[in-house]
Simulated scan of single mutants.
Amino acid sequence: MRRGIYLIEEVDFRPMNSRKPLEYLTWLTRYKKEDERLDRPDLTKGLSIRSREIDLVGAFYAVGITGHPQFKAVTLWDCHGGWDGGWRQMMNIYDGVDDRLFLSDIDDLRFSAFSRPLGAVHGSPAVADLLAEEYAAPFYLFESAQVRPGAALDYLAAVREERAPVLAEHGHRLVGLYEVLFCDTEVVTIWGMSLDDHLATQRAHDAALGLDDEIAPDERLLDWRKRAREFLDGPWRETLLAPFPGSRLAPAGVD
Rank of each mutant, 00 (worst) to 15 (best):
V166Y: 04
R110L: 14
L76G: 01
E133Q: 14
D55M: 06
R148T: 07
L174Q: 03
D154C: 11
H198S: 12
Q70G: 05
H122D: 10
F111E: 11
L195K: 11
A200N: 11
L130T: 00
F182T: 10
Y140S: 02
H170G: 01
D197I: 04
F139V: 15
D107S: 14
D84W: 06
L199C: 07
P125R: 00
Y155K: 06
A168Q: 05
D184T: 09
F139M: 12
W87T: 07
K72N: 12
D99L: 13
V187R: 00
A200M: 15
H80P: 01
L177C: 04
D95Q: 12
D98K: 08
C79G: 08
M193F: 05
Y155T: 03
A164D: 13
V63M: 07
Y94V: 06
A168T: 07
D184E: 14
I190E: 02
G96D: 02
F60E: 02
Y61L: 15
S144D: 05
E186P: 03
G86T: 04
P138N: 12
H198A: 15
L177V: 13
D98G: 05
D154R: 11
M193V: 09
D154N: 08
M91I: 10
S115L: 12
A145Q: 04
D98C: 05
E186I: 07
L195N: 08
F182W: 11
L101N: 09
C183F: 05
L177Y: 08
F139K: 07
S104I: 05
R110C: 12
P117E: 09
E162I: 04
V147F: 07
D129Y: 11
S124A: 14
